[in-house]
Computed example of a mutant assay.
Amino acid sequence: MVVIRLSRGGAKKRPFFNIVATDSRNRRDGRFIERIGFYNPMAAGGEEPFRVVQDRLAYWQGVGAQLSPTVARLVGAGKKVAA
């Protein structure tokens, strides 16, 4: 099953997450199919904390990909901010 989830990057105590479409059997930071956005919880000032390519997200959901709970929360909060 394809799942859309966070993949951790960044330095120690400075997390940065890529939002990726991957097979659910792959490791968290392992191989992925496509990078569709990012989440930076440490964003400060004018930095952008969250971005996702909406058409690719819609495509993956259309072919049956499931959102992880955290990504679902971020996408829902992102829509409220954009509106």
Rank of each mutant, 00 (worst) to 15 (best):
V2H: 15
I4Q: 08
I4H: 03
I4L: 00
I4K: 02
R5S: 07
S7K: 12
S7H: 02
R8D: 04
G9N: 07
G10P: 01
A11K: 14
A11S: 13
K12D: 02
K13N: 13
K13G: 09
R14G: 00
F17P: 04
F17N: 04
N18V: 03
V20D: 01
A21R: 02
T22V: 10
T22N: 10
T22K: 13
D23R: 13
S24R: 13
R25S: 15
R25F: 06
R27P: 15
R27A: 14
R28F: 03
G30R: 07
R31N: 12
I33L: 11
E34N: 00
E34Q: 06
R35Y: 02
I36Y: 06
I36R: 05
I36N: 04
G37I: 02
Y39Q: 01
N40R: 09
N40D: 12
N40K: 13
P41N: 07
P41W: 01
M42I: 14
A44L: 13
A44T: 14
G45I: 09
G46C: 04
E47T: 10
E47N: 10
E48V: 14
P49I: 06
F50E: 01
R51E: 08
V52F: 06
V52L: 06
V52G: 01
D55N: 11
L57I: 03
L57K: 08
A58M: 08
A58C: 04
A58K: 15
G62H: 07
G62Y: 07
V63L: 02
Q66A: 15
Q66R: 15
Q66F: 10
L67T: 12
S68H: 11
S68M: 01
S68A: 12
P69C: 02
V71C: 07
V71H: 12
R73F: 14
R73N: 14
R73Y: 11
L74I: 12
V75F: 12
V75S: 01
G76P: 10
G76N: 13
G78C: 11
G78E: 12
